[in-house]
Simulated scan of single mutants.
Amino acid sequence: MSGAPPRRGGRVSRTLSGLVLGLGCVLLLGGFVLAAVLYQPYTVPTDSMAPTVAAGDRVLAQRIDGGEVRRGDVVVFTDAEWGPSPMIKRVVGTGGDTVACCDDQGRLTVNGDPITEPYVEEETGASPMGFSAEVPEDELFLLGDNRGDSRDSRTLLAETGTGSVPRDAVSGRVEAVVWPTGEAGLLDRATGFADQPGGVSGEGPLRPLFYATSAGAALILVGAAWGGIAHRVSRKGRRGVRTSGVAHNEGTHG
């Protein structure tokens, strides 16, 4: 009779350990699967987007439809006029906008409103060259953050008279740097465009996915440790039962 509680307690502990392990696996694997579905990795080829991202940085871009793009987004796109490879630039104008540079304080303007851009390379500012463009409907005007060393919409505007790209050329919105680890983190929102029609994009699902996978990994560790402890406790309980039975039998015979 005295051995029953430890055995029941051991079974309950093992059951709970299994549930914790199962939940941890669901969170961990589910988080990774969703991240693979919702995001695409991309290696930045040049310094045209410095200091936001640098050549060789590994980033995650949320897979989006071109219709979801907002001013200020850093996007991955492919357009034959820009070359055969995917490019990464910042959207500064959408269909119907008038984008120009620079005002008397050296700032980019969109529809006549000056835009605060803390992410641009300080030495070159909003742009070392003046320009003005009207963005066609369903197209985007894109600039690199390193305005002194970026082939972007300004360049094509000067060469061909139009520098915009179709919205459907966009395949992703860059949300985070993941490598190198010292630079890893979410990109800041471009709040300077917040007063423009449509506002700016909200944060994507990467943060909750990170929390889910982290919680899953932690639960797996806890469940495994819990199961090991429960097993040892159960074994001790069984040994105690056997020892008590032997002592009881010896006392009876005596």
Rank of each mutant, 00 (worst) to 15 (best):
L19P: 03
R58T: 08
C101R: 07
A184D: 03
S201I: 01
D57K: 03
G240Y: 02
V174I: 04
D188E: 14
V92R: 00
L19F: 10
V222E: 00
A50N: 11
V20G: 07
S13F: 10
T252K: 09
G3F: 09
V53N: 05
I229S: 08
G3K: 10
T162R: 11
V110Q: 02
S48M: 01
T155K: 02
Y211T: 02
A176G: 05
R14T: 07
E250L: 09
A158F: 12
R235L: 14
R90M: 08
V59F: 03
E68I: 05
N146I: 01
V92I: 15
P197V: 06
L186Q: 14
G96P: 13
S85C: 00
G95D: 07
T124R: 03
M49C: 04
G24L: 00
G93Y: 15
A4Y: 10
P136Q: 02
L156K: 13
E137T: 11
T94I: 15
A36C: 03
W82F: 14
I220C: 14
G245V: 13
V92Y: 02
L60R: 08
V91Q: 08
A4W: 14
S132H: 09
Q105R: 14
V170S: 08
L21I: 12
V170E: 00
P118D: 00
A4K: 11
A247E: 15
V222T: 03
S153V: 12
L140K: 13
V174Y: 01
A133M: 07
L38W: 02
V76T: 12
R7F: 11
F141K: 03
R11Q: 15
L142G: 10
D152G: 07
V20F: 06
L28Y: 14
D168C: 01
T109P: 06
D113F: 05
P114N: 06
T78Q: 15
A224S: 13
P166H: 09
L142F: 14
V20E: 01
G204D: 02
E81F: 09
A54P: 01
T109E: 13
S164Y: 08
V110A: 10
G96L: 11
E122I: 14
F193G: 00
T52A: 12
G112L: 02
P6R: 01
V37G: 04
Y119M: 13
D57Y: 13
D145F: 01
P118E: 00
V174H: 01
G93R: 15
V12E: 06
A194D: 13
A50G: 11
I115Y: 02
V110H: 05
K236C: 06
T94R: 14
M49Q: 06
L108C: 12
C102A: 10
G66C: 03
R90C: 05
D188H: 06
A194K: 14
F131R: 09
D73H: 14
G112E: 10
L156W: 15
P205H: 08
R70A: 11
E81R: 15
P136I: 02
G144C: 07
R239A: 15
D188I: 04
G163M: 04
P45A: 12
F32N: 08
V222Q: 00
L27N: 03
Y119G: 05
M129H: 13
K89L: 15
T162N: 11
L16Y: 03
A176D: 07
V76Y: 05
V233F: 09
F131Q: 05
T109N: 05
D73R: 11
T160N: 13
I64R: 10
R238G: 13
V26R: 00
G254R: 15
V12K: 09
S234Y: 06
M49G: 03
K236P: 00
V59S: 09
